[in-house]
Simulated scan of single mutants.
Amino acid sequence: MLNFPQFSSKPQPIPPQPGQESVWDYPRPAIWQPTDQLIQVICNGVTLAETHQGKRVLETSHPPTYYIPPEDVQPEYLEATAHQTRCEWKGRCRYFNVTVGDRSLPQVAWQYIDPTPPFADLLNHFAFYAGPMDACYVGGERVTPQDGQFYGGWITASVVGPFKGGPGTMGW
């Protein structure tokens, strides 16, 4: 007998208030757009990345994932791993370990090394999982990490869900 995972039905989107976006209004397939908001990543007391020239990827049911230009990332704290994945829309990416002082975090950053044509501007930009870091910020607001172990979205007060990533959301 085969056992198939149970999926919850598509949730009811939360209506956005003024100044908010619903992730259910984001497109599928995903798109990217520039942002001039200050993006910061802090690990073990060190600012790993800081930029006003980030890019955010928007996809239905996901909070934005933020990408930081390589020149705005402290490379001495990152070590490339052999792990790679492929996104059907964004292309092939590789992962990085982050080590700051005595703290080592495996595969908590990634960059697209062979992006698809619509995502060519993400080439070599870095994204970080917010959960393992001390803090990540967008426009001075501390973000909440997207649930789950796979997606790298950052939740702020400007986006409403519900968000994909937690238990029962795989089929959304």
Rank of each mutant, 00 (worst) to 15 (best):
C43T: 04
C43G: 07
C43I: 06
N44F: 11
N44T: 07
G45C: 10
G45M: 06
G45Y: 03
V46D: 02
V46M: 05
T47G: 07
T47P: 04
A49W: 00
E50H: 07
E50N: 14
T51W: 02
T51H: 01
T51V: 09
H52V: 12
Q53W: 03
G54M: 07
G54F: 07
G54A: 15
K55R: 13
K55W: 03
R56Q: 13
L58Q: 08
L58Y: 02
E59V: 09
E59K: 08
E59G: 09
T60I: 09
H62Y: 14
P63Y: 04
P63E: 10
P63V: 09
P63K: 11
P64A: 14
T65Y: 02
Y66E: 02
Y66W: 11
I68Q: 02
P69E: 05
E71C: 05
E71N: 08
D72P: 06
V73P: 06
V73M: 10
P75N: 06
E76L: 05
L78T: 02
E79F: 01
A82K: 15
A82T: 13
H83D: 11
R86V: 11
C87M: 12
E88N: 08
K90A: 07
G91V: 03
G91Y: 02
R92T: 15
R92I: 13
C93G: 13
R94E: 10
R94F: 00
R94V: 07
Y95S: 14
Y95E: 09
F96Y: 15
F96V: 08
N97T: 11
V98I: 15
V98Y: 00
T99D: 04
V100W: 00
V100F: 02
V100G: 06
D102S: 14
S104T: 15
S104F: 01
S104I: 03
S104H: 10
P106C: 07
P106Q: 11
P106W: 02
Q107L: 15
Q107R: 15
Q107D: 10
V108M: 13
A109N: 03
A109V: 02
W110K: 03
Q111V: 06
Q111R: 15
Q111Y: 04
Y112W: 10
Y112F: 14
I113S: 14
D114R: 13
D114A: 15
P115E: 04
P117E: 13
P118Y: 04
P118R: 08
F119H: 12
F119I: 08
A120C: 08
A120D: 12
L123F: 07
L123P: 00
L123R: 14
L123T: 06
N124W: 05
N124D: 13
F126A: 07
A127D: 02
A127S: 15
F128M: 14
F128R: 09
Y129V: 00
Y129K: 10
A130N: 01
G131K: 14
G131C: 01
G131S: 12
P132S: 13
P132K: 13
M133H: 00
M133R: 00
M133E: 00
M133F: 00
M133Q: 04
D134S: 12
A135F: 01
A135R: 13
Y137K: 15
G140S: 06
E141M: 12
E141G: 05
V143Y: 00
V143S: 03
T144C: 01
P145S: 11
P145E: 03
Q146M: 07
Q146C: 12
D147M: 09
G148R: 04
F150Q: 13
Y151G: 12
Y151S: 12
G152K: 03
G152D: 06
W154R: 08
I155F: 01
I155Y: 01
